[in-house]
Each structure stands twice: as structure tokens, then as C-alpha cells.
Amino acid sequence: MQRVNMIMAESPGLITICLLGYLLSAECTVFLDHENANKILNRPKRYNSGKLEEFVQGNLERECMEEKCSFEEAREVFENTERTTEFWKQYVDGDQCESNPCLNGGSCKDDINSYECWCPFGFEGKNCELDVTCNIKNGRCEQFCKNSADNKVVCSCTEGYRLAENQKSCEPAVPFPCGRVSVSQTSKLTRAETVFPDVDYVNSTEAETILDNITQSTQSFNDFTRVVGGEDAKPGQFPWQVVLNGKVDAFCGGSIVNEKWIVTAAHCVETGVKITVVAGEHNIEETEHTEQKRNVIRIIPHHNYNAAINKYNHDIALLELDEPLVLNSYVTPICIADKEYTNIFLKFGSGYVSGWGRVFHKGRSALVLQYLRVPLVDRATCLRSTKFTIYNNMFCAGFHEGGRDSCQGDSGGPHVTEVEGTSFLTGIISWGEECAMKGKYGIYTKVSRYVNWIKEKTKLT
């Protein structure tokens, strides 16, 4: 034993070699072989497995989906700052455009905790909710729209109204504003409101030439003092309507412009014939205590009207009353817009006519005020429907199939267009061939041609 100890002390290297040989010859039971080890760690190889990531292109799944990435790591994937920024906006807080917040056709661009709407022409605001041009839906104005110097929408209202708090709607500024039905039992019968379409306001006024200088022999019209197929109006439903009495009662109609003036057809009036105007009328054979009678003290036909040349060209006249009318729910003026808007309103496509005229061709006159909704007829169809001249200051309205029309005794009465609950004068009943005849239409004086003249002559002093 002493000898062994001496050998170990003198030859430590020998001992180490012996131990190493023993270990190498022993069977290893701690580690699995290569094949079995792979069965336990069965993990798919990654895209760049075996390579240094710093030297390969980034992978979106590896960089940002398996674990949260930084902007720089995302930049490695896209290799483009702009594309990385677009991805980053949604990656950080989701897609803010998912709810489609942009209105009126706006395009949404996502941002971090926010979004941006790219608005089409005519709109602005956070969600493109603000109209900035009158060309689109009248700028959301209830009545009139004008573009300011910086191309912003400025709404306005006709006389007797003021802008509401929203700067879009119009509200009454006087007790009985024009064009409004205020009798409670008839307010439910107000005709369907007309909503502004998209309009090209630059070209809204037709490029028409008034044929002022045409000389033409007097034409022989049949029954051209021209509501057939209409309905009984309720008291106060058309408070701007008046009836004219002269040699015979209810020979023509008219509309209240203001307390002192009536507008009617020029062919209705004769110099030297006494005319009485009755406002607030409903049943011409009954006294309903809503009527107001006034005498006409002055007749002003349009300066281009000449019955000797043509009885229905420039067929418009103004009547001055001896005493002002007292405005109330049964006696209310009709609204008159400017030339541009009167023309736009007419193009809405349908209007209402009213009167006490004959209820059928050569038949009896109506006792109760009649009204009828009539569609506008395109000019080409209008011209083809008659052998008589249709001037540019006239328009056609009615039904091709016949059966409904204005008729004798309705002449001078109103053709009105309702705009968001307020009625505007767009025409004056003038003439036609018979009444409600198939293929024939009622012919009306186009008020847009005469609004400046009306307003100039009827100013209240």
C-alpha cells in the first residue's frame, strides 16, 4: 500500500490518463441519441435557420407576430419608411378606419389613436360632414345658397324668414311668412316636400332668348283662358290664391305678392273693366268669414305684352289694390325667389296649380277651390304637342294621358313649387288646347323671366 501511494504521488498524470480511459469505455446513459432527441424537440425550422439574422431580410411573422416588435424591426421587413409607417399605425392600436367614419364618399386613412378623412370636392370637416359648395344638395341650405369668396357655403332665406341657429334652416321672422300653410287642420295635408338634388348652379339658368321682337298675326285659340281631375282644397291650404270678379264672377285667378299687390295673367284683364279681388276665398257660393274683398285701382301688364300681336306672350300683369290686405292664416303671400332659384325650383319637376275653373272641358265651374299636382314636361315634348308657338318664356306641365289639367277660369292662378315646406311661385296658368285632352298640356308663363320686374313694381313704400 505504501508503494502504491508513492507511485500516485510521483505520477499524477498517469492516474488522470487511467481515469479518462475508464470513462470513455463506459456506456453513456444520461444523453439520448440524435434521433430520439429530435422526437422530443420537434420544432419547425425557421426561415433563416442556421444563418445569422443580421444578414437576412426581415420576416413579418418572425419579427412582429411571434413577439412584439419595434418600429426598427418592422422597418427591416418593409425596407421602406412609408410602408412601415402605414403598417405601424394599425399594428400599434388597430384600424381606426374600420367603422368607416368618413361621410359623403370620403376616404379614410388610419393613424395612431386617430384617423384622417380625405374629402371629395365640396366637403370638409373631420368626417367630411361639412358642405362647402352650393353645387351639392344646395349646400344643405333649406332655401338659398351662395358661395363666399373663400368658396364656403353661405345660406340665406327669402323675405319674412331668418336663418336658424344651425345656419342652414329657415324659420319665420314674421307672423305670416310667405308660402307657408298655417291653418292647423290643413298642415297635415301639406304636399310632399321637395329635397334639393345635386345641381350645376353655374349652368342652372337656361341660355334662352326671349323672342321679344317676333311679330306674329293673332292666333285663334280655343278655350285658351284655361282644375280638371283635381281635388277639393281645404280652407287655408292655398292662402296665396285669390279669385278675380268682373263682368262675371271667378273669371280668373291670381296670387298675393304682398298686402297691396296681386300677380295674374295679362290676358285676364281689360282696361276700363272694374275688377274686384277676393282673398281668403274657399267656396265661392258661401260666406265663410275668411274672405277679404278689395278693388283694383291700377293694372300693370308687362311692358312687352301686346294682345294685338299675341294674347299669351309675356302673359303676366300686376294688380294694385285700393287697401292693403290683412295677412292671416287664410290670406298669405306666395314666396318669389330670384331668377336663378325660381328656375331651379321649376326644374324640380312638379308643381301645384289651383283655381275655381271648370271641372271638365266646357263644363261647370268649381264651387270649392280645386288643386292638382302636375309634372313638368320637357321642352321637346311640349313643342311636338301643339302647332302653336311655345315661346321661351312659357313652359308645359300636365299629363300625356289627359284627364287632369287646369281649365277655363283658372287662368292667372299660381303654379307653385314647394321647397322644404315653403311654396314659391314658378308659373302662372296661361293657356292650353281644350282641357285635359290626351297628348295636350297646360301652358304656363315662366315666372323666372319676370321676377325682377315683379319685385321692382310691387315694392311697398
Rank of each mutant, 00 (worst) to 15 (best):
387 K>S: 06
456 E>L: 09
146 K>T: 14
172 P>E: 05
145 C>K: 00
354 S>A: 15
283 N>M: 10
122 G>Y: 03
440 K>G: 13
127 N>T: 06
87 F>C: 04
14 L>Y: 06
363 G>P: 11
116 E>W: 06
42 N>D: 13
296 V>Y: 00
161 Y>C: 00
381 T>F: 13
289 H>F: 11
253 G>V: 12
440 K>Y: 07
315 D>V: 00
398 G>S: 05
253 G>C: 10
79 E>L: 04
217 S>N: 13
50 G>P: 14
194 T>C: 04
113 N>M: 07
163 L>Q: 03
421 G>L: 04
329 S>E: 15
404 R>N: 06
358 R>W: 07
270 E>G: 08
297 I>Y: 05
383 L>R: 14
452 N>S: 14
318 L>M: 03
140 R>D: 05
305 Y>N: 03
399 F>E: 14
203 N>R: 10
28 C>A: 11
246 G>L: 04
200 D>Y: 07
440 K>Q: 14
40 I>L: 12
242 V>Q: 00
66 E>Q: 07
321 L>Y: 01
75 R>E: 15
197 P>H: 14
171 E>G: 05
150 D>A: 09
170 C>W: 01
399 F>P: 14
43 R>G: 15
305 Y>W: 10
433 E>D: 14
413 G>W: 10
357 G>I: 09
294 R>E: 01
232 D>C: 09
366 A>D: 13
16 T>G: 10
309 I>M: 12
432 G>N: 14
460 L>S: 08
56 V>T: 15
336 I>H: 01
251 F>G: 05
370 Q>W: 03
309 I>R: 09
94 G>P: 12
10 E>A: 14
218 T>P: 12
364 R>L: 09
416 V>C: 06
454 I>W: 00
17 I>N: 02
351 G>A: 10
281 E>S: 10
265 A>S: 09
372 L>S: 13
449 R>C: 11
66 E>A: 06
76 E>S: 15
121 F>K: 12
52 L>R: 15
213 N>I: 08
227 V>W: 11
327 L>S: 03
356 W>C: 03
420 E>G: 15
120 P>A: 11
198 D>Y: 08
353 V>P: 01
187 S>P: 12
163 L>R: 03
167 Q>P: 03
119 C>W: 00
308 A>P: 06
264 T>W: 01
249 D>W: 04
156 S>H: 10
90 Q>R: 09
133 T>I: 04
326 V>I: 12
88 W>G: 15
388 F>Q: 13
137 K>L: 08
39 K>L: 11
219 Q>V: 08
426 T>V: 00
336 I>A: 01
457 K>H: 14
233 A>Y: 08
312 Y>R: 10
368 V>L: 10
36 N>P: 15
438 K>T: 13
219 Q>S: 05
355 G>D: 02
216 Q>Y: 12
158 T>E: 04
260 K>A: 03
224 F>W: 12
16 T>K: 08
39 K>S: 11
286 E>V: 08
179 G>V: 00
268 C>R: 00
174 V>L: 07
208 E>Y: 13
312 Y>K: 06
361 H>D: 13
142 E>W: 04
151 N>V: 10
331 V>M: 01
235 P>A: 10
165 E>H: 11
138 N>K: 03
78 F>R: 15
285 E>L: 13
